[in-house]
């Protein structure tokens, strides 16, 4: 079966696209699948850092497009998982160095040898976005439970629907249960109602994500993280498994207090 291209996009910047790409790529590879994560954010590449692979890059996507190397040579093998590769973006060029048809070509070449190609889209709805979604079989929209992020997600969904791209899945990232409880944050059901697309994951806010990203260790590799578990669940849902959504709005204040006392006692 040819590999599937899944593009991660959002419209708004800073909602966690690259984090989601890195973690979803790793999570799929942990399911023993052959995975390529492809950074389409040319000129502002970050995916390599989050994967901890920056210092292994020799060639990049633009080198492949412009014929300076073969596709295989540009792919950076992950240092942890043998079947995970990164196809990095160029840092010294911009979005115009690649066209949507280039992306389709490259993804088609990758399909033969991989199970999943996870494409990290840049923010915005311009050329970079058009490149990122050109080859997509499925699209994951990442949003935060904030009105601006949801509005931009809605715009992007509209553009994708107009091009008949899909299926489109929704990931709500950086949900803070206590803020939702106080009514300061949109709750997940409000976001789903506003966007009216299929939910595939809810990622709780997790401070360890930042540290993990800085160390180049996607959070999904750590066993005791709620966020990591949420990414593993997204991978399994993408594979067609039915995984129930963990109750997020719990635990209550009292339970958290008990947990706090316990952990301090250890």
């Amino acid at each position: 079966m040819p590999g599937k291209v899944v593009t991660i996009t959002s419209g708004k910047g800073g909602v966690g696209k690259t984090t989601a790409t890195a973690n979803l790529g790793v999570a799929l590879a942990m399911e023993n699948l052959k995975v390529v994560v492809l950074d389409a954010d040319i000129g502002l590449r970050n995916l390599d850092m989050m994967m901890g692979l920056e210092n292994r890059i020799v060639y990049d996507l633009v080198d492949v497009v412009e014929g300076r190397c073969r596709l295989r040579q540009a792919m950076v093998r992950d240092k942890r998982l043998p079947e995970l590769y990164l196809l990095p973006a160029a840092q010294t060029r911009d979005k115009t160095a690649v066209s949507p048809s280039n992306m389709i070509d490259i993804c088609n070449q990758l399909r033969d040898t991989t199970d999943f190609i996870v494409v990290d889209s840049p923010a915005g709805i311009e050329r970079g976005f058009q490149n990122a979604v050109a080859a997509a079989d499925e699209v994951i929209i990442v949003t935060n439970p904030e009105v601006a992020a949801v509005r931009d997600a809605d715009r992007v969904i509209g553009l994708l629907e107009a091009e008949e791209k899909g299926p489109i899945h929704l990931v709500i990232n950086r949900v803070k249960p206590d803020m939702v409880r106080r009514g300061d944050m949109l709750d997940t059901s409000a976001v789903i109602e506003l966007l009216a697309i299929d939910l595939i994951g809810i990622i709780p806010e997790d401070e360890s994500i930042v540290g993990a990203a800085n160390r180049g260790q996607p959070i999904v590799l750590s066993n005791n993280s709620q966020a990591g578990l949420a990414f593993r669940n997204i991978a399994r849902r993408l594979l067609g498994h039915s995984v129930p959504f963990a109750p997020l709005e719990k635990p209550g204040l009292f339970q958290r207090f008990i947990k706090l006392v316990r952990s301090e006692g250890e």
Binding site: R151, D154, R155, I157, G158, E161, L194, A196
Partner: peptide
Amino acid sequence: DRTLRSGQKAHHPGHVIVFGDVHSGA
């Protein structure tokens, strides 16, 4: 016969009927 999402618009000299929602930003 669909939902109008943010950034989408319908301009028409006659009447307009939408079978769907008109989201904020549309």
